[in-house]
Write a protein that binds this DNA or RNA. Sequence first.
DNA 1: TCATGATTCTTGACAAGGTCCAGTATTCAT
DNA 2: ATGAATACTGGACCTTGTCAAGAATCATGA
Lengths: 142, 142
Amino acid sequence: MSSGFTEATTQLLRDNGVQVTAQRIAILEAVKDSPHATADELADEVRNQIGTISRQAVYDSLSVLVDKNLLRRIQPAGSAARYEDRVGDNHHHMICRDCRTMHDVDCAVDEVPCLSPSASHGFEIDEAEVIYWGRCPACQSQ
Amino acid sequence: MSSGFTEATTQLLRDNGVQVTAQRIAILEAVKDSPHATADELADEVRNQIGTISRQAVYDSLSVLVDKNLLRRIQPAGSAARYEDRVGDNHHHMICRDCRTMHDVDCAVDEVPCLSPSASHGFEIDEAEVIYWGRCPACQSQ
DNA sequence: TCATGATTCTTGACAAGGTCCAGTATTCAT
DNA sequence: ATGAATACTGGACCTTGTCAAGAATCATGA
């Protein structure tokens, strides 16, 4: 948005060994501005900022940023992948079945139990993804 | 498969207010035979049993059966929807990042905590979906 | 500051997984 | 047995995402 933001974002990319391009800066800032947006929504937002971007560049940038752990990808059942910049903590999501609104939720039982299923079958588990499904207050009152 | 199975399946459909058709019986039995299969895989299996079925009928049947709670749909990131007939208990899944094998896992912390996020934001939660991501023993030893 | 090579972006084709629609066939209740 | 309700078929279509080849951009050393 402002050049101040852009500068910080540039530094963030550099610090993480990601080549700096206008597209990547714009994508990263778009995700910050609207967490839980889809690739398509982000593309639209970026076009408002820098005029134009190809679909492929959106997907490429998002992949790189997810790989470098600057973004997190969430892929709820029945909808396109969504992205957020809140990384490094073990938080989960709550999604409304009707309007698909997504909210962040802190880990229910304090991080460790989240990674401990009752029987691991020899699996080496690195992530426990939790999604709470239900109805948001707005949709309940209808 | 055998007519004995078919009869039981017929009854199950009737008991749940689902109109009985050859396609639905075949779908339901295919899911029993191969849990965690995709719609496409199930279609193939059904074709082996009853000769032919349209793609649409597969999707329609699966939707009805999921709605009536005779099947459960699981939609892990990066792969097509999968179906299982183990319904009514609160079990979760563990998926190998490499080979995508899916295993059932009983609820980690005993059902109740699973449905209790730390802050519900007014949501009325009806399901906590948990997916453990990691690597299966086979893929670890490579 | 500029040339240079490496990386990234654009464009267009393609694929998987689902959905929509109109017409036909089946099932169920009377 | 028959008609109304429901389900199935086949084909077109949409969305989300990937692949590939050439053009543009970025980072580095001189």
